[in-house]
Amino acid sequence: MGDLIRKSPNVSILMYHFVCVAKYRRLEITDEVDAVLKDVCLEISKRFEIRFLEIGTEGDHVHFLIQSVPT
């Protein structure tokens, strides 16, 4: 699943599962929106110490499995 993140004082494997739902559960997430969303997530992971392990989309919601370092 996720890899261990090693920092000087500790070793951690901290993962978050977020589900973001469209307003009124409308079917708003198309293939085009999915592609843009994944590109934005890759840019975020380059700038910050965040890894997107899984990004799953369906018509009315998005699942994110994110690994981060505790601060």
Rank of each mutant, 00 (worst) to 15 (best):
M1P: 10
M1V: 07
D3W: 03
D3V: 01
L4A: 10
I5E: 09
R6H: 15
N10P: 00
N10K: 06
N10R: 09
N10M: 07
V11D: 11
S12Q: 06
I13R: 10
I13W: 04
L14Y: 06
Y16H: 12
H17L: 00
F18E: 01
V19A: 12
V21S: 10
V21M: 06
A22C: 15
A22P: 08
Y24T: 12
Y24Q: 14
R25M: 05
R26F: 07
R26W: 07
R26E: 10
L27R: 15
L27C: 15
E28P: 03
E28Y: 15
E28T: 15
I29D: 07
T30P: 04
T30N: 03
D31R: 01
E32H: 08
V33L: 07
D34H: 07
D34I: 01
D34S: 03
A35V: 08
L37V: 00
V40P: 02
C41S: 13
E43S: 14
I44T: 05
I44L: 11
K46I: 10
K46G: 06
F48V: 05
F48C: 09
F48N: 08
F52N: 06
L53V: 11
E54M: 03
I55G: 03
I55A: 02
I55N: 04
G56K: 09
G56Y: 11
T57D: 10
T57Y: 00
E58I: 00
D60M: 01
H61N: 07
H63R: 09
I66V: 15
I66G: 02
Q67A: 05
S68H: 02
S68Q: 10
P70I: 01
T71D: 04
T71Y: 13
